[in-house]
C-alpha cells in the first residue's frame, strides 16, 4: 500500500469512528429504569413468586422487600446442592438477625417430595423450604442447572446469579458484608 493511500484510509477510518463515537449517546442512549423489567440477571428486578411451604403457608418474594434474600433452586438428587447448602446454613445463622433470608426452592416437579423433605429435616436447615410443583418459578428464573443461586438486594434487584457450587459461604459472606455496610 502506498503511503498516501494508507494515510487517506487511516484518516477516514478515524473520522468514521469518531463520528460513530459522538453519535452513540444520541442514537443509542442507555435506557434507564431497566430494573422495571423482571429478569433473573444482575441489574433487573427479581421475578416475583408465591410458593407453598410444606406447612401450607404461602411465601412470596415481595414479602421480603427491604431485606437481602438468597433464592436457591435445588433438588435432593443434586449432590452439588447438598454440598453447598450446609455452608449457606452457617451464613444464615450468622446473618438472619440482620435481616438476611434464604428461600430454598425445591424443584419438586423433577424431584421426589418425600426424599427432599426428609433430607431437609435431617439436616436441620432453619430457612424456609418452598415447593415449586409446576416448575413455573424455575422457568421464570431460567434455571437450567442446579443449584442456581440468586442473590437479591433489599431493593428487589438481582445482584448476582451463581450456577453450581460457586455460591460458597465465603462468597456469600463477603457479598453480605458489602451489602449490609452499604445499608448502614
Amino acid at each position: 500500500m502506498k503511503k498516501k493511500t494508507f494515510i487517506i484510509i487511516a484518516i477516514s477510518v478515524l473520522l468514521v469512528s469518531l463520528t460513530w463515537f459522538v453519535l452513540t449517546p444520541l442514537l443509542f442512549p442507555s435506557t434507564s429504569g431497566e430494573s422495571t423489567i423482571a429478569a433473573p440477571y444482575p441489574g433487573f428486578s427479581a421475578p416475583n413468586f408465591s410458593l407453598n411451604t410444606p406447612g401450607g403457608q404461602v411465601l412470596s418474594l415481595s414479602d421480603y422487600e427491604g431485606q437481602p434474600v438468597l433464592v436457591i433452586f435445588w433438588a435432593s438428587w443434586c449432590s452439588v446442592c447438598k454440598r453447598t447448602m450446609p455452608g449457606l446454613q452457617t451464613v444464615y445463622e450468622d446473618y438472619a438477625s440482620r435481616g438476611f433470608e434464604i428461600l430454598a426452592i425445591n424443584t419438586t416437579y423433577q424431584d421426589s417430595y418425600l426424599t427432599a423433605i426428609n433430607y431437609f429435616e435431617e439436616q436441620n436447615y432453619t430457612f424456609p423450604f418452598l415447593i415449586d410443583e409446576d416448575g413455573l418459578t424455575a422457568s421464570d428464573y431460567k434455571t437450567h442447572a442446579l443449584p442456581t443461586s440468586v442473590l437479591i438486594g433489599p431493593d428487589g434487584d438481582v445482584l448476582d446469579v451463581v450456577i453450581g457450587s460457586g455460591m460458597s459461604d465465603a462468597l456469600l459472606r463477603s457479598k453480605l458484608d458489602q451489602l449490609l455496610v452499604d445499608e448502614n
Partner: peptide
Amino acid sequence: GFFLQNPETFLARPLSIFTLSPTM
C-alpha cells in the same frame, strides 16, 4: 485478589481460598 479485597472473610475461613469454583 478476591481475598485481599475481603480480608475478614478470608481470615475467618482461610481454607475457603481453595474452594473449587469459578467464583470469588
